[in-house]
């Protein structure tokens, strides 16, 4: 009986592949033979084919011209906003430059060298100022420049194809005393879209450090509902415990009703709810 169910499933999948024209010649001939000689399969095929053809006939209304107009307006606005940002920021220009060249290790090395020279020049300039070094504004400016370089390095390294480099990039935020919207957005983007779960977990842990910012908590709470990866789900639950975020109880409870929720994640969520409810 179990074997029969299995065959049934394989055949149904093959029927769909056959109707999609995705079967090789050998399989196609085998299936055609089966359809002709097996009454049950023949009937199943007829039903599937009728359904498939009816689905093909379904027509949807074409999008309106407004969709195109809205897109080009959005693109124009986005470009204008980006250009304004670039012209206003030396660091953004440098970042753009490095993103063009980033694939080349030599160019990357040169970028680091130039940055090192700039930093050295700034430091020697400050040392030469002797007594003026005590000047608060100079120290502050230097500190801002170092912070800017860290940001620049982080943003550039986040685009590296190697996961370990992206993790290093995320870890740069640990050394930062504050993060601006650029860095936060980069962390959000890494946490939500990076193809590597480990990088996403490192980004999540980095975000926890900035959980005093309301948008960070909001992103983490939303992720609780949307996250599919069990590893990241568990890391999110740990983050909620660390932050003692009671607002996460409701989304966690809702996720418990998800039939596809991994059994270990389910246990973890139940424990988390218990700990947060105390």
């Amino acid at each position: 009986m179990e074997q029969q169910d299995f065959n049934q499933q394989v055949t149904e999948t093959m029927l769909i592949d056959y109707l999609n024209g995705r079967l090789g010649q050998t399989e196609r001939l085998k299936l055609e033979n089966l359809i002709q000689n097996n009454h049950e399969i023949g009937q199943q095929f007829a039903e599937t084919k009728a359904l498939w053809q009816a689905m093909s006939q379904i027509q949807i209304p074409a999008p309106t011209k407004k969709m195109d107009a809205d897109f080009f307006e959005m693109l124009h606005e986005f470009k204008t906003a980006s250009e304004t940002k670039i012209s206003n920021s030396f660091w953004s220009q440098l970042k753009n430059l490095t993103s063009h060249w980033f694939d080349s290790k030599l160019a990357f090395g040169m970028t680091i060298l130039v940055l090192g020279c700039l930093l050295g020049y700034s430091i020697s300039g400050v040392v030469n100022m002797g007594n003026n070094f005590a000047s608060g504004s100079k120290v502050e400016r230097l500190s801002e420049e170092v912070q800017g370089m860290k940001e620049l390095m982080m943003l550039a390294m986040l685009q590296n194809p190697q996961a370990t480099e992206r993790m290093k990039a995320v870890n740069y935020t640990a050394e930062m005393t504050d993060v601006d919207s650029k860095v936060l957005n980069a962390l959000f983007s890494t946490f939500q879209f990076d193809p590597n779960d480990n990088v996403r977990i490192v980004a999540l842990n980095a975000l926890v450090k900035w959980a005093d910012k309301p948008q960070v908590r909001q992103v983490l709470l939303t992720a609780l509902m949307e996250e599919k990866s069990p590893l990241v789900q568990v890391a999110l639950a740990d983050a909620m415990i660390k932050l003692q975020e009671r607002k996460s109880i409701q989304p966690l409870q809702e996720k418990l009703n998800d039939k596809e929720l991994n059994i270990y994640v389910k246990d973890k969520f139940e424990n988390t709810i218990e700990l947060l409810s105390i």
Partner: peptide, 18 residues
Amino acid sequence: SEDIVQAVFYRMLKYRAS
């Protein structure tokens, strides 16, 4: 659906670095 198309392209622009 038109709104969704718009949102997808906006996000692709915004998160192009990812």
